[in-house]
Design a protein around this nucleic acid. Structure first.
Length: 366
DNA sequence: AACTCGTGGTC
DNA sequence: TGACCAAGAGT
């Protein structure tokens, strides 16, 4: 066996992946385009503020969904200082609809730490980044690689899928994660760390997809054990998921010709923390929804036909909507539910999550 | 370690 | 229609 054949047998993923990336990299708003790199050779790595912002938004969220939010945020808050000095409620409002609202709370918290304690400069190491609120193992590695050229091992859902297939790892997630990380670590190149990380994720997003992977056009098909053994599409295996229970509740929509709708702020932590809601009764875990006497007594209620259905990460939610006309004592009612009246023309400035918009829509109010 | 935490697209 | 899935982190 000569040396060339040996070299082929131990080929690194990066050797085939980076040339593919140079030809097929998607242009994304937070990514330096080849044109930018050519016209400004000093601009080797993307601005950490922009990379951080995009990576937080991209957690468990598709590129298509993130694009619009990213551009809106960058327009409203061009720098870490702009974001740090903004009020949380305005950030939550801009985040509304994107989901996982703890990300927005931590985004604000992190901006304050960087702006006020670190002089506006992001840490340039994986270890330093990992200490920031909302920045976990994936995000720390990604920012370190993309913005600071650190040869970190970036492992997200895409990389897990690519690695599971490439090495034909048949043990189920999440138990196999450490082994995946180990395999990914062996493949991490010292050069072009950011490009390699993004190339792996692009590969997973466009070719090594969960269903019907494009093995025939894959740049790393040659040494892929999953493809060779014909099990690529079935990997990675996952532990069976728990069934989602259904919770049910009544929503109490107070409406006023003069004052609009009565809305309130949810508790700071937990589900939809800090977001705006239509007042609801208890969210009953099993069985039918229950009326809330404290809310019932405040007005004369009409039950609307049909129900609003919404699925959260770990439960289904079914809401029966009640409406009531309020024509006097507006402030007393608002005080009783600890809410505020808002005209529908002002809804755009509120932090209304999707489930609450569904309720308002069902009542034909928006 | 296992659970919590959103939403929109896709098949 | 419903289950699955997506550039995960915090507790």
């Amino acid at each position: 066996m000569n040396r060339i054949q040996v070299a082929v047998l131990v080929q690194m993923i990066a050797e085939e992946l980076l040339p593919w990336y140079d030809r097929h990299a998607r242009e994304l708003p937070w990514r330096l385009s080849p044109r930018q790199k050519r016209s400004n050779p000093d601009l080797l790595f993307a601005d950490p503020y922009r990379v951080w912002l995009s990576e937080i938004m991209l957690q468990q969220t598709t590129v298509a969904t993130v694009k619009g939010y990213y551009e809106k945020f960058l327009m409203a808050w061009p720098s870490i200082h702009d974001l740090a000095s903004e009020e949380l409620d305005n950030i939550l409002s801009a985040w509304a609809g994107l989901g996982y609202y703890a990300r927005a709370r931590n985004l604000h918290k992190c901006a304050k730490v960087v702006a006020e304690e670190l002089g506006g400069i992001f840490p340039d190491t994986e270890e330093g980044l990992l200490k920031l609120p909302g920045v976990g193992p994936y995000t720390a590695a990604a920012i370190a690689a993309i913005s600071f050229d650190r040869p970190t091992t970036v492992v997200d859902g895409n990389v897990e899928r690519v690695i599971a297939r490439y090495y034909a790892l048949e043990d189920p997630l999440p138990g196999v994660k450490p082994q995946m990380k180990e395999c990914a670590q062996k493949q991490t190149p010292n050069e072009r760390a950011g490009d390699y990380a993004q190339a792996m994720m692009d590969l997973g997003a466009t070719i090594c997809t969960p269903r019907s992977p494009g093995c025939v056009i894959c740049p790393i098909q040659t040494d892929c054990l999953g493809r060779k053994s014909g099990i690529a599409e079935d990997l990675p295996k996952k532990a069976p998921k728990k069934e989602k229970p259904t919770r049910r509740a009544y929503a109490y929509l107070f409406l006023s010709e003069e004052r609009g709708a009565l809305l309130r702020r949810r508790p700071e932590k937990g589900l939809l923390g800090g977001m705006t809601e239509v007042p609801t009764g208890n969210w009953i875990v099993q069985g039918n929804a229950e009326r809330e006497p404290g809310l019932d007594q405040l007005s004369q209620w009409t039950e609307l036909d049909g129900i609003v259905k919404h699925t959260f990460t770990h439960f289904h939610f079914e809401i029966t909507v009640l409406t009531a006309k309020v024509s006097r004592d507006h402030d007393e009612v608002a005080k009783a539910v600890q809410g505020k009246w808002a005209h529908k023309s002002d809804f755009a400035a509120l932090a209304l999550p999707t489930v609450m918009k569904k309720i308002l829509h069902h009542a034909d109010y928006i």
